[in-house]
Structure formats: C-alpha cells, structure tokens
Nucleic acid binder design. Structure first.
Length: 935
DNA sequence: GACATCACG
DNA sequence: GACGTACGTGATGTCC
C-alpha cells in the first residue's frame, strides 16, 4: 500500500533510545555468561511500551527505527573536528549495539542504517518524502538537531517526558521558527557536537539576530548595521566559521535510499522470533509481559547458573526451582504447622511473612502468616479469613472454615519466632515485628532483605519486594491489586478467599527466601557487612519501639488552632477576591497566575512544565512590592498549609487506643542514610515561623513527665571540616567559636569584633551552599544578589579554604570512576547518573558532593540510636522521635538531668570507636512540657 | 497520577 | 557567554 494522506510515519532515533536505556538502568548482566545486557533490556522495554501505547489520533501506521553507522560522514570532510570531543562509548555499551539492532528486527520493525550517514540525515529524508506524499510524521527523539524538520505535518515526540514537540515547542526552545533553527545553531554553535558557531553568541543572542535580519547570509551581508561593536566584529571576523557551522547543522534530506515510506508499514511481530530473542537474552519478566501482550503462552526462560570457575566450591549447585505459586501449601491443622516449625528449627532458618488487614501496623489485624523453607517450598497459614459473604447479613463476624484457632497457632509460632537458634528472614521485618509485638510476640533474631538491598544498592533503585524480585530473581510478583482490588471497591485481606490468598502469601515468603540466598553472600563482596549488621539491622527494632511508643498530641489545642485558621483564611480570601475584582480559587496556582499575570499584567509571569503560570513564594515575594494582592496570597497559603497539613491532619492520626500519634519511619527512605517519616511525617513539623512553631505546643508530655530534646550542633559543617581537613574550621570548632562569623571574618577580612549580621548571614549561606554542592546561581538566588557577586564569594571561599574545592573535585572524581560515594562509616551511596550528560549531570554531581556529608551525619545519629536503649535502660525514659539531627525523649519528672547527661554522652561519642573525628561533636539540650518549650 | 507548592533538617 | 542548578525528604490540593 502506498504511503499518503491519512498515514502517519513514526521514525525512532535508535541511538538516542539506546543511550537513554543505558543511562536509565544499572549494569545488568546475562545470568548464564555475564554479558552486559542492561541497555538491551531497557531498549526492548521502551520499544514494547511505545508499541503498546500506539493508539489515538497520533498513532503510527508506518514505523522504523534508524541508527547511525560508521563514524565518518560528509561532515567530517567539511570539518575535521566535528564531534571530536564526544566521549568514547562506555565499554559495557559497545557490545550491546548489535544486540539492539537484532531487537528491532525481532520486533519486526524495519531497522535502518546507512554507512557514512548519520541517522539524522536519513530521518530528514524520510520525513521529507512522507510529507510530500501528504502524510504526517512523528520523529521520536528530543535531539535539538532534528528540530529544524518540524512543521508541515512533521512533529517530534520526547518519549522520556511523554511530550509532543510542535512548531510552538521549537519556537520555545530556539526563539525562531523551525525553518530558521539552522541559522540559530550556526551562530550559537554546539559544544556537544563541537560545532564552532560564533564565539560569544548563544542561542538567545542568535535568535535575536535571526529574527531581526533573517538567515545567515542576509545577516552577514548586513553585519555592519549591528549596533553592539563587539558583536558586529565577531560576526565579521568569523563569517566563514559561521557558514561552515551552518553546513554542519543543516541536515541532508536528499539521501539516496533504496526504499521509501511505503515500505515501512506497521507489521505484527512474529511471536516465535520475538520471544526467541528475548529468551536468548534471558529477560524473564519482559518475556512474560510480551507473551501476555501477544496472547501466547510465555516460554520458559532457562535459568542457567553462571559458569563456575574451575575449583569452584560447589559445582553441583542445582538450578533454582521455578516459581509455582499454585504449588504452595495451605496449612489448616496443627499437625502440619508443627511439622513445618520443626523443620525450620532443624534447619536453623526460615523465611517469614505476615498478612494483615491494612498498612498501619498499629491498627491492622493479623490475617495469616506464611513460611518458606527452601526455594519453591512455601506454605500459608490462614488464621482470620472471613467466611464468604459474611459481610452481607451477619455483621461480617463469621470466620471461614478450616483455619487453626488463632491462639493455638500463635502459641506454636511464638516458640519458633522467639527461638534464638532460628533465624527469621523477612522483607521489611519492622512491619511484621510490630504486628507481632502487639500480640505479645518478639521476633528475633532476624535478617531483612529490604535492609540488605538498602545497604548494597542505595541510590540505584527502590527496595520493595516487587522491585527486588523483578530485578534479582527475574520474577514478577502477583500484584496485591489482583486480590484486594483498588480504589473505592478495595477489600481487606481477610475478605480474600483462602485459596487465592495462599499463592500470594506463599510467594511473599518464597521470594524473600530466594532474595536472602541471593543477597547474603554479596554483602561481603560489596563491603557493607558492617553497615548492615552494625547499623541497619539493629536499628530496626529501635525504630519499632519508638513508633509503638508514639508521642502524645493534644487534640483540643489543634482543634482550637484549626478554628482560628479557618477564620483567618476566610478573611484573607475575601480581601483577595476584593483586590482581584473577582472570585476565584486562591488555592489554584493556575487561576492565581491568570489573575496576576493576565488580568493584572504584573511582570515576571513564567510558565512551568505544564505551560501554566508558576507562582512560587519567591515570585510572589517580589511582586509584593508592586501590589497588595501577592502578600495576601502568601499569608493565605501559610495559614492554609498549617491547617490542612498540620492542625487538621494530625488530629486524624491520633490513635484512639493510645491517644498518641505513631509515625512510621522508613529506614530505607533516603539514599543518603537519613530516615524518612510517614503517616504522619513528624520530621517536618513547623518551627521557622512563630505561628507555625505554636503547633509544637500540641506535642506534649504525659502527666508527671517532661519532653527532652537533644540535637547536634552544626553536625554537617563539622563533618565537612573533618573530611576536607579545613584547619581554620577545625580550630574554630575546637575552640567553640561562632563558625559563620569566623568564615565571614576569613572571607571578607572583617575582624570578629566588627562583624555585622549581614556579613555573617552571607557567610552562613555560603557554608550551607558548600554542603549542597554550591553554584553561583544557587547562592545568588538564596541571597538575592547578582550572580556575578555570588560567584565572587565562592571564588574567594575556595581561595581561603582550598581544601573544600579539593574535597569536591576528589569526591566527584571518585563517583565518576566507581559509580558510588561512601560515608566515613562505609555506607555506600550509588550515583548512577554521575556520567550522564546535560542538566542531570549537574544534579548528580551536587548530590555526590552532598551525600558523604549528609550520610555521615545520618550514620552518627543512627549509631547513637542503636546504643541508646541499653544506655538509658533503668531510666524512666523513652526515645520517641528522630528529626535528622535531633532526638526527642519523654522522661519522668526528676530524671531529666540524668537522661540529658546519659543521652548526650551517647550522642557526642557516637562516631567512636570506628571513626575518630578531629572536631568535637556538640549536643544542645532543652526540656519542657511540650515540644516547643523543649527547644 | 502528575504537578505545584511548602513544611522540615 | 551559554545552559540550568543549591542537598535530602513527605503531604496536600488542584487538575486532567
């Protein structure tokens, strides 16, 4: 069939796809021979998702993937240095290139490459042919070099951001129409492709010139008319270089091809060929998913064990059992349960998991438990499943038949779970341990696959069971949604029929067991055994105890504040509507933006990602000098935040049984080693404003008790001083000086006794900026000073403290070489994006600089927390909360001083004996009837 | 469910 | 001189 009107040709930029796949995924190797296949897997995934989503008005009728071939093209003949500063292709990627071509063919998609031509030129040619035939074209790429092709039915599609780029999109990027893009590129040049352009002219300036004069030739002919002398001279001096640049960026849309759009009609893949290829790559999940999409039986991917080296200690290792959820056993009688428990004891370890009615460990009920003794050998013990239809007529109380009575089963399980000689293996053990603790059962000793993954792979990926199973076992888990549904019609696990619950619950234990067998030997190889055994594993029970203790929150106080906030909001809202001259939703940034920037035409309206106006606080802050309205909106937002996030929401988190609020800490929440706090988040209770701070008055001690807060003073700066070896900082900390004032004095040559608050404020911002991987732009924005001035400060800072720059450079170099950074205590934080290009590289760089500092501080307080229960044993005190550098305790009146001195000693000495810091750690303490007073 | 906004260290 | 930027989190409301 010939291509024409009504047809739509999609052209995928294959090389861009590969690089994205390569950088998006961690190095994955084929199990049988260790060949790198991560990029191939990512590539296939992206291709599959692209095809699956091919519907709607922009769907392809014709499709091809285009690759570059050869490194020498006509552009190298024009300009030797073209693309000369491209980095070498990574070693792991090179062998994957031919495999991705085979992947395209396996999908039955035409795979196009032509010796001596860049993919861009082939795309340009096909796009022109398709356009001339009267059809539409979508170029799947975000490469700006292709933007010149947009228009007349040709658009681009950024698969990463899932966004189409049309003529307006190109105008936004280059400031000119697509037809003029080459002229802008010719002037601005391109450092990535090493196109020289005109020195000193960037895209902004280039667009300005092109819009005024037209194309390059006209511009060069009329260069004399340019007013700015420097710019005029540049253009005159570099005319030839600019012409050359244009011929480099101009795509050739007249490549001789022995086929055309007609030949690229969308074809169904041949299941045998496609699944054969995927099986050969040993992509288990992907094979299964694609088989499902094709409606055929998924082939078994042989699980070939890696080739053991000669003399390997166990050449007879059998292949792991395949996953067969239907084969899991349902235990319905005490005899069988006792038998499994006996086998677990004989073996010395067992994988264990609980099923419950919800995610809140403080309120949910136990529904059943599962056990696994070997890969593929798992059992589910239902305990509290409801009878079918029990919820209709009889109040939902009737239990399903054939379950061991709860009491009896728990008594038997207690012996196993509390047996010091049996290791319990779980995934996120803190959850199960809390559920069991409410039933009076202590679960110890244990191993936790979530924490093992966190210790080894922090920063690489999440640590949930589904993620780990897919990644390390190649097995997609049964989604919980298949059992309990989602949204409004969601049911609790006790309503799931036992015959459906058994494969799911059994799988949880089976997967956990297999992950443990996979991870355990790797801890040593990754050098994180100490991190796991000394910091992560022992912290979990400590967190569980803190969470169960909870903190008392006074409902009346919050309720009164909510009432007052409501009134204040209503008053502000009325004033805002009055000032705006119309009613609108103040909480909608979109509507607010339209009022401010369209209706009132205030300056500075910038569009966010979605094209709507952005109205963040700092923008409104600037506008507040122009008009009354922005200030009112800021006030409204402040009150609205306090009410909805704190005074309203916190009340709902008060547990009716304990009268206290019980947060959950996510031990693997932050890549740096920090904790995260959820449901509710008690690590972001307001303190910076007077009004917000009053919310802390609702966090109170019980009658006869006191809240005590201890926090590390300047811990991250102290760590920086130690790691980077900055002598002036170390001395200042040893002598207890004001560190920001000292920095200011050093930088601005102001004696300490003449220090002003303003100068000190600047130094403080720089000190913090350093910890975050400082940039002139960031500091400028923070201090609201010109960028040049901010850069001057930074330069001066590095001059005075050269060790800081060395630390930054060394850390980034280490990350580039190893793909990770480390804390002083050996915690590993992976930096997979550190060798990426573009803005992502900047993010990764700053994160790598920050991670060892933030992470070491996190390690120190974790160590203190692990030691704390034993240290304060005997004192009438409980540790309640951790807020990164602060610990909050509740203690009986009279024992405050004893607690403070004990806890302070633990905290100040927490780095030792593993690390001897050459700066002191200092802990400040406060106490009072509520959290506000304890500060 | 993505995005914008804002609370904390 | 150009680009886009402070690090790490979680909860809420709007809007599609």
């Amino acid at each position: 069939m010939s291509f024409g009107k009504g047809h739509h040709l999609h052209l995928i930029d294959g090389s861009a796809f590969i690089f994205r796949a390569y950088h998006a995924l961690p190095p994955l190797t084929r199990r049988s021979d260790g060949a790198p296949v991560g990029a191939v897997a990512g590539f296939c995934n992206m291709l599959q998702r692209y095809i699956a989503a091919n519907e709607g008005p922009d769907a392809a009728t014709h499709l091809a993937v285009i690759f570059d071939k050869g490194s020498h093209t006509f552009r190298n003949d024009l300009y030797e240095a073209y693309k000369a500063n491209r980095e070498e292709m990574p070693e792991e990627l090179r062998p994957q290139i031919p495999l991705t071509r085979r992947a395209v063919e396996a999908f039955n998609i035409p795979c196009i490459e032509l010796e001596g031509f860049e993919a861009d030129d082939i795309i340009a040619t096909l796009a022109r042919q398709a356009r001339e035939a009267g059809g539409r074209v979508t170029i799947v790429s975000s490469d700006k070099d292709l933007m010149q092709l947009v228009g007349g039915g040709v658009e681009m599609f950024d698969a990463m951001k899932n966004r189409r780029i049309d003529v307006d999109g190109v105008r936004e990027k280059f400031g000119v129409d697509p037809a003029r893009v080459v002229d802008v590129q010719a002037l601005a040049g391109d450092s990535v492709d090493n196109v020289p352009g005109a020195p000193g002219i960037g895209v902004k300036t280039a667009a300005l010139l092109v819009n005024e004069f037209g194309d390059i030739e006209t511009l060069l002919a009329r260069a004399e008319e340019i007013k700015q002398p420097k710019r005029r001279q540049t253009l005159i001096d570099h005319a030839e270089q600019i012409r050359l640049s244009k011929s480099l960026v101009q795509l050739d849309d007249n490549v001789t091809l022995d086929f055309g759009p007609d030949d690229l009609e969308l074809r169904e893949p041949d299941p045998d060929a496609l699944l054969g290829f995927l099986t050969e790559m040993e992509f288990r999940t992907l094979t299964r998913r694609i088989a499902e999409a094709l409606g055929v039986e998924p082939p078994v991917v042989p699980d070939v064990a890696p080739q053991e080296e000669a003399g390997g200690d166990d050449p007879e290792t059998p292949a792991p059992a395949p996953f067969e959820p239907q084969a899991y056993i349902c235990i319905r009688d005490m005899g069988t349960l006792a038998d499994w428990i006996a086998r677990a004891r004989a073996q010395g370890w067992v994988a264990f998991d609980t099923e419950t009615t919800g995610l809140d460990e403080m309120r949910c009920e136990l529904v059943g438990v599962s056990l696994a003794l070997a890969p593929g050998e798992a059992a589910y013990v239902p305990l509290a499943h409801k009878a079918d239809g029990a919820d209709d007529l009889f109040g939902g109380e009737a239990l399903a038949e054939g379950q061991i009575p709860m009491e009896e089963a728990l008594a038997a399980l207690r012996d196993l779970l509390e047996d010091d000689a049996v290791l319990k293996i779980g995934q996120n053990v803190k959850y199960d341990a809390k559920v069991l603790a409410r039933l009076g059962i202590r679960m110890a000793p244990f191993d936790d696959t979530l924490l093992m993954s966190y210790a080894m792979y922090s920063g690489l990926h999440g640590h949930g069971m589904d993620t780990l199973s897919e990644r390390y076992l190649g097995h997609g888990c049964i989604p919980i949604k298949e059992l309990i549904g989602s949204g409004k019609s969601q049911i609790t696990f006790d309503r799931v029929p036992i015959d459906k619950a058994t494969p799911y619950a059994g799988e949880d234990a089976d997967v956990t067991l297999r992950l443990w067998q996979h991870f355990k030997p790797q801890l040593h190889a990754a050098h994180v055994t100490r991190v796991y055994e000394r910091m992560e594993r022992p912290l979990a029970p400590v967190l569980a105890r803190m969470e169960m203790a909870g903190v008392r929150v006074d409902r009346d106080t919050l309720s009164r504040m909510s009432g007052a906030f409501s009134q204040k909001m209503a008053a502000l809202e009325a004033e805002i509507h009055e000032l705006a001259g119309e009613r609108f939703n103040v909480g909608s940034p979109k509507q607010l933006g339209e009022i401010l920037f369209d209706k009132m035409s205030l300056p500075g309206g910038k569009h966010g990602k979605t094209g709507a106006y952005a109205t963040p606080a700092d923008v409104l802050e600037d506008l507040a000098t122009e008009h009354e309205l922005p200030r009112k909106v800021l006030d409204w937002r402040a009150v609205s935040k306090l009410k909805s996030t704190y005074t309203d929401a916190l009340q709902e988190h008060i547990n009716p049984e304990t009268g206290r609020v019980h947060t959950s800490y996510v031990q693997s929440g932050a890549a740096t080693g920090r904790l995260a706090s959820t449901d509710p988040n008690l690590q972001n209770i307001p303190i910076r404003t007077e009004e917000g701070r009053r919310i802390r008055e609702a966090f109170v001690a019980e009658e006869g008790k006191v809240l005590v807060s201890l926090d590390y003073s300047q811990i991250e700066l102290r760590i920086l001083a130690h790691i980077a070896g900055i002598e002036q900082l170390r001395t200042a900390f040893r002598e207890g000086q004001d560190i920001h004032a000292m920095t200011a004095s050093e930088m601005f040559d102001v004696p300490l006794d003449e220090m002003t608050p303003e100068i000190r404020r600047r130094a403080k911002a720089i000190n913090f900026g350093v910890i975050y991987g400082i940039s002139g732009f960031g500091l400028a924005r923070n201090l609201r000073i010109p960028r040049g001035e901010a850069q001057g400060f930074i330069d001066r800072y590095f001059e005075r403290f050269p060790g800081i720059r060395d630390y930054m450079d060394d850390t980034v170099a280490f990350a580039r070489e190893h793909g990770r950074v480390e804390t002083l205590f050996g915690r590993v934080i992976h930096t997979p994006e550190i060798n990426a290009r573009g803005p992502r590289a900047g993010f990764a760089r700053r994160a790598a600089i920050n991670a060892p500092i933030q992470g070491t501080a996190a390690d120190i307080i974790r160590r203190a927390m692990v030691r704390m229960p034993a240290a304060i044993e005997g004192l009438p005190a409980e540790m309640l909360l951790q807020v990164h550098d602060e610990l909050l305790f509740e203690v009986e009146q009279g024992a405050e001083d004893a607690l403070i001195s004990t806890a302070r000693e633990v905290m100040e000495g927490a780095a030792e004996p593993v690390v001897k810091l050459d700066v002191p750690l200092v802990v400040d303490a406060g106490q009072g009837a509520n959290w506000a007073a304890a500060h």
